[in-house]
Computed example of a mutant assay.
Amino acid sequence: MTSLEEGEVYQHLGMPTGVRVRQTPGDTIAEILWDAGQIDSSLLTPWQKINALNTFLIPRISFLLRGSAVAKVPLNTADSTIRQLVKKWLYLPQWASTDIIYISHRQGGANVPWMGDLCNVAVMIHAFRLLTCPDPMVRSIVEEAVQDVVRKRIARTPSEQDVATYLSSSLEAEFGREGGDLSSLWSRARNASRRLGKRISCRWKWCEEHREPGILVPCIKTPDHTIVTPTARTMLERTLKDAIRCHYAKNLKWKPDQGKVFEVSSKWDASNHFLPGGSFTRFADWRFVHQARLNCVPLNGAVRHGNRDKRCRKCDYANETLSHVLCGCKQHSGAWRHCHNAIQN
């Protein structure tokens, strides 16, 4: 082993490791983005590119976030690059809603997570697994460490409920006191809980009956709540990520313009069967379907800015919208009849 001075680092599993050093692995993130560019320039189909991103690159980023304290600026840069690439593979303009990138395939999206959410989930999982570690010695060391952090925050000996309140990022009473908070895993877990709480209303809880901590994750699809206990600690990551995906899907449905189709198409898996592997889908269909679902087809009626003429370029109808072109433009009445007869036959 090499002897290191304070501030010196060595690469451990792709992460800078040392005493009082910046743990953001800039070189590793740059390599991941370079690989994303190689996927973009390859001859893979668009759905294969999205699959390669989710299979090979996103897990590498998740691994980095679990093992180090990564700064947000490099993550935001990486997220911006990945977001532009995914929109390019979906044939969407850059002004299209980004929610479609972050929702699951079953709901009509690309299933690519946002880097900020990945970072917050990784911190919460790491903190929860330490607090619920099966090894009693490790658990006692962790409990002593987190109680020391909370004691400096509230200036008194904390109870288990106080620890849960602190980790839930409460600012009530003494928890909103200025000063006394040191930068640590627990302060990062507190910040991550606050950021995720704004999106999915998750929070830490202490069960007095079983004498164990837990994390409450509200279900967006149903009014019920899910409490992840130490016995189900391996389910925490999936539960948080599912709640985040549902949050983005709900945001997309609320948009009056780009969310109309997703209100219906996200109800059944059959509506999105082609997204994971491109089954039974032509390239022309792929180039059209995502623009059509988000109302981003370059038609006169879809222009949102300026005083451009919105009349149909074929029949001079007042508003050239996608529904008019597909179902209302009389220039295509012959195509309607053939489509109708083909469905009947």
Results as ranks from 00 to 15, higher is better:
73 V>D: 11
63 F>T: 07
279 S>T: 12
122 A>L: 13
51 N>K: 15
102 Y>Q: 13
211 R>M: 02
185 L>S: 03
82 I>T: 13
169 S>R: 14
275 L>G: 02
41 S>M: 09
30 A>F: 08
208 E>T: 11
60 R>L: 02
292 A>D: 02
268 W>P: 02
67 G>N: 08
147 Q>I: 07
42 S>I: 09
156 R>E: 06
22 R>I: 07
167 L>A: 07
331 Q>E: 15
37 G>R: 14
99 D>K: 14
202 C>I: 05
51 N>H: 14
302 A>N: 15
129 R>Q: 11
211 R>C: 02
55 T>F: 01
19 V>D: 01
215 I>C: 00
176 G>M: 10
219 C>E: 09
51 N>G: 07
227 I>S: 04
299 L>Q: 10
317 Y>I: 03
29 I>D: 05
267 K>I: 04
334 G>Q: 10
232 A>T: 10
232 A>Y: 06
305 H>T: 10
306 G>M: 05
198 K>D: 04
20 R>V: 01
233 R>P: 00
110 A>I: 09
6 E>G: 00
320 E>Y: 06
37 G>Q: 07
318 A>I: 14
85 L>S: 07
20 R>P: 00
183 S>E: 14
234 T>L: 10
204 W>P: 13
69 A>K: 15
240 L>V: 03
341 N>T: 05
36 A>R: 08
305 H>W: 08
189 A>H: 08
50 I>D: 00
226 T>N: 13
287 R>F: 00
75 L>C: 04
250 K>I: 00
244 I>E: 01
90 L>I: 05
340 H>P: 02
296 C>P: 01
41 S>G: 05
37 G>L: 03
74 P>Q: 07
273 H>P: 01
299 L>T: 03
91 Y>V: 14
269 D>V: 13
31 E>D: 09
231 T>A: 05
261 V>C: 07
214 G>D: 07
306 G>P: 10
71 A>F: 02
74 P>V: 04
186 W>S: 02
33 L>G: 01
193 S>T: 13
173 A>N: 15
248 Y>R: 05
59 P>V: 01
180 G>L: 04
213 P>F: 10
116 G>I: 12
314 K>F: 15
172 E>H: 14
303 V>I: 15
226 T>Y: 08
129 R>M: 09
316 D>T: 04
104 S>M: 10
255 K>F: 00
94 Q>H: 14
296 C>V: 00
313 R>G: 00
297 V>Q: 08
43 L>E: 08
100 I>M: 10
31 E>P: 01
136 P>V: 09
111 N>I: 04
43 L>A: 06
21 V>M: 05
123 V>F: 12
232 A>L: 06
284 A>C: 03
202 C>R: 13
84 Q>R: 15
320 E>D: 04
310 K>E: 07
282 R>G: 09
217 V>L: 07
280 F>K: 13
